[in-house]
Design a protein around this nucleic acid. Structure first.
Lengths: 203, 203
DNA sequence: GTCTATATCGGGATAGAC
DNA sequence: GTCTATCCCGATATAGAC
């Protein structure tokens, strides 16, 4: 067990991840992945029989790193407001490292709703704990009546969407100024939780 | 002027739109577009010289219908809170008709940031009016201090993201129940403005 | 395990008849 | 304007030497 996967295999996966995420399954070229990995096309097929198989491997790896990240924070023992603060901060950071991943996932989901969705589901996300926590805060009267699902979706939306629409925001609003855009996203780590807590806190 | 474009040309555009939005530029097949339009591959090239040109036509059409829709509402004369309410309602409706379009745009933007972004910019979005309106409400003391950009981005995020992540939400949260998901989105037309106004109204 | 060379096929594009 | 037939390139995949 704990067998160390060969260096080449890891190189390939890393290169494939980059190219697939950028270009999508259909737009990616095996040649480009080979170049990126500094090896030969034939070797790709030696390690992963086909493009399809290589894609599966990449996609599964991406999901299995991303999803637990979400779950972990939602399940942690922090009080609700702090949880929201920590979540926004960590999640925006994670997304900044791989800003193209959400669009990649959503795009591929469009292509193959069946297969991909099954993969996601098999990772077993558990929103129950968080939902109960929200309900209990409502009963305690610390926050207003709100459907926990809307709260989660609002939180996720405000964290994820500004990152995935980076190209549009950069061009339309920030006129190409990369640093201004990044400062804006940086602010959002505080701004989003504040906004949410303002919206739900009972005064 | 006001020349009526041939029926065939319109059929092609409609078919191409469907296939391109679903599969993306790279994943789309000219054959599939031809089938969808009930015509022959060669005819596609007769009307639009190449796949690239056809794609351009489709993309431009999509943008020119979507963007003015946004601008119009943001520029209207309604008071701020009503504007937010109307915007959420109309925008969510628009998205429900074409839920795949935002991801399509974002995906293609990843592929060709230069070209696509130029197209978007050339449509001339004007957020100035809305921004000034927010600033004036802050001065009047009706809403809290908030950067208008964050407000716009929050509003757009909460409208757009839940629709584009429909496949994920449906599978993870709503366990395939299409109608439950749709009811949820329907609620959001009221929920989102309420949430936002709660967050910014001075009490 | 890694390479070069090649088979095979799918898909965009064109030619030319009607 | 619309079709059938065909060209031709690019991309996946395989064979086989090292």
């Amino acid at each position: 067990m704990a067998e160390i996967n060969s260096n080449t295999e890891q190189n390939i996966l890393k290169a494939a991840k980059k190219v697939f995420v950028e270009k999508g399954m259909a737009g990616a070229r095996m040649q480009e992945i080979a170049n990126e990995a500094g090896i030969n096309k034939a070797l790709l097929h030696y390690y992963f029989r086909s493009k399809e198989k290589l894609f599966e491997a990449v996609f599964t790896e991406i999901l299995s790193k991303l999803i637990p990240n979400i779950s972990e924070l939602l399940l942690s023992k922090l009080p609700l407001f702090e949880k929201i603060e920590k979540f926004a901060e960590h999640y925006i950071d994670t997304l900044l490292e791989n800003p193209s991943i959400p669009v990649f996932i959503l795009h591929e989901l469009n292509r193959d709703p069946e297969g991909i969705a099954r993969k996601i589901k098999s990772l077993g996300i558990q929103p129950k704990v968080f939902i109960n926590e929200v309900k209990s805060e409502i009963e305690k009267g610390t926050i207003i009546q709100i459907d926990p699902f809307h709260l989660i979706v609002n939180l996720l939306s405000m964290c994820i969407f500004p990152i995935v629409s980076q190209p549009i925001l950069r061009h339309i609003i920030f006129e190409e100024k990369e640093d201004v855009y990044l400062a804006f996203i940086e602010q959002r780590k505080k701004e989003v939780p504040e906004f949410i807590i303002n919206a739900i806190r009972k005064k």
